[in-house]
Design a protein around this nucleic acid. Structure first.
Length: 473
RNA sequence: GCGGGUAUCGUAUAAGGGCUUAUUAUCUCUGCCUUCCAAGCAGAUGAUGAGGGUUCGAAUCCCUCUACCCGCUCCA
């Protein structure tokens, strides 16, 4: 096993044992590339989503949020091109075991565009032209060209399987925004430039999923479509593009707390861009298996709205209330996968520290806002009422809206380590002095040192301590 | 999906067809002890991925399924 797989395997095992991510359908032996989020995983995930929402939407006057349905009218996917592009014919070379997209294979070999051809026709073209395996350069023994639909489909027909009632689980969330563009303009009186954000699940039946949470079949996206007036110059849209790119970087490093050196910008080559995109730049994260995509930013021009305008027959143009200019807005699309971001966050926060005395500890150095628990209340001893007092204090903190954990098993040192492992920034220890003067010791995850007046903090001050900015580190 | 490999308590591991009530460590839990950074002692829970076959006897051999890992594609 490679070192990269070791590290990925380690974080997956760690995530499982600490209650962040469990294997999907575990007791039945699992189901490929599905993962369940455990209690701490849910908290971390919610915190990540809430941080995104705050940073990109609720803190701004030019953003609104929608939550579109996973099922959409099938014509949406015709308009977006998914029923065409996401269902590619594949062929295998039985000799070399290589697999190719049939359309690419044919186009590269004999320069014919097979768009719209059936699998049978494509198979025939490959055989008639005796196309060789481009990797080996040798004769190939091709399988039949087979359809591989990336979209999960189901059927609205409750009795039979009427093809007219076939529906898809959305393979991306973006279309749910575009179809609601007109609604947002009308109900929110939104004025261009403005953006619509959305957090939601999407589903893709990937050919090669894997790498823990990197490529999974059910995933969640946090996506924005930011509508602008049709740019008159390249500089004009590029400026907006750069702003969004910087915002993404700021969000990852300042809000999520990812180390800047683990992020890399990747400009997509012009010739490899999707047909609708004028420019695409990814932020890549340094996963154990190398730098790979974390987020994307694409300038999609007016492609999507125009497509929907054409297919739906509805006018999706916008009238500028000041200039009276009428146009179909162009759009910037910054998007990030929740699951990838969660994995990157965990990888980035995961720290092993050597301590004096030779032993080591694992610390999840989550940003304060992301930590599942902000504080753990620990009784120094189980007896003499300390445990009861600590439980009561945990309950009080939760009532104040502070995510507090409580742990009374094992030695105090062991419990500190456990909290370090799940990234809890603060530990409050209830000891005998607590019973006398109502103070606790407050210890921080990163420094392992106690804070407060003489190392002690009054119970009633805990809430304000934790809500003060200087303590949210 | 195709090819190759793998599958034993939560985790890491032992058991060359019978010596197995499946080993050891760790984790988890209980009790004792313990006044702040993975202490100690005593005890407990917990596994041969699922199904079938060969055999007097299967964790071990065979088949099917499932999952995982490595390649081939792709891009949140």
């Amino acid at each position: 096993m490679s070192q990269a797989q070791d590290r990925l395997d380690k974080i997956a095992k760690f995530a499982n044992s600490t209650g962040f991510v469990y294997q999907g359908s575990g007791i039945y032996g699992g189901l490929a590339n599905t993962w369940d989020f455990g209690p701490k995983g849910v908290m971390l995930r919610n915190n990540i989503k809430e941080a995104w929402r705050r940073f990109f939407i609720t803190s701004r006057m030019d953003m609104v949020e929608v939550d579109a349905n996973i099922f959409m009218n099938s014509r949406v996917w015709e308009a977006s091109g998914h029923t065409g592009n996401f269902s590619d014919c594949m062929v295998d070379d039985k000799i070399s075991k290589h697999r190719f997209r049939a359309d690419h294979l044919i186009e590269d070999a004999i320069g014919i565009d097979v768009e719209g051809k059936s699998p049978e026709e494509i198979t025939q073209i490959i055989r008639d032209n005796k196309i060789k395996n481009p990797i080996t350069g040798q004769e190939a023994d091709w399988t039949e060209a087979r359809y591989m639909n990336m979209m999960f489909e189901t059927n609205r027909d409750k009795i039979g399987n009427d093809p007219n009632q076939k529906i898809y689980l959305r393979p991306e969330t973006a279309q749910g925004i575009f179809v609601n563009f007109k609604n947002a303009v009308q109900s929110e009186r939104a004025r261009v430039p403005f953006g619509i954000g959305q957090i939601g699940k999407a589903f893709r039946n990937e050919i090669t999923p894997g790498n823990f949470l990197y490529r999974i079949v059910e995933f969640e996206q946090m996506e924005i479509e930011y509508f602008i007036a049709p740019p008159k110059t390249d500089e004009e849209w590029n400026q907006v593009f750069e702003e969004w790119k910087d915002l993404q970087f700021e969000f990852f490093t300042q809000v999520i707390g990812i180390k800047p050196e683990n992020l890399k910008e990747k400009e997509h080559a012009q010739e490899k861009l999707s047909h609708y995109s004028k420019r695409t730049v990814d932020w890549e994260y340094n996963y154990p298996f190398g730098f790979n995509e974390l987020s994307g930013l694409a300038y999609r021009t007016d492609f999507d709205l125009s497509q929907h305008q054409e297919h739906s027959g509805k006018d999706l143009s916008y009238r500028d209330p000041v200039t009276n200019e009428v146009y179909v807005p162009h759009v910037m699309e910054p998007t990030v996968g929740v699951d990838r971001l969660l994995m990157a966050t965990m990888l980035d926060a995961y720290t092993e520290e050597e301590l004096d005395g030779g032993d080591s500890r694992v610390v999840m150095k989550f940003a304060y806002d992301l930590a599942p628990f902000k504080i753990a209340v620990l009784p120094l001893m189980k007896k003499d009422g300390l445990a009861e007092k600590a439980l009561e204090l945990s309950q009080d903190l939760r009532a104040q809206g502070i995510s507090a954990d409580y742990d009374m098993t094992g030695s105090i040192g062991k419990r500190y380590r456990r909290q370090d492992e799940v990234g809890t920034p603060w530990c409050a220890t209830v000891d005998y002095q607590t019973m006398e003067d109502g103070t606790v010791t407050l210890r921080h995850r990163d420094t392992m040192e106690q804070v407060g007046d003489g190392g002690r903090v009054k119970i009633e001050d805990l809430g304000s301590y934790l809500s003060s900015k200087s303590f949210q580190k």
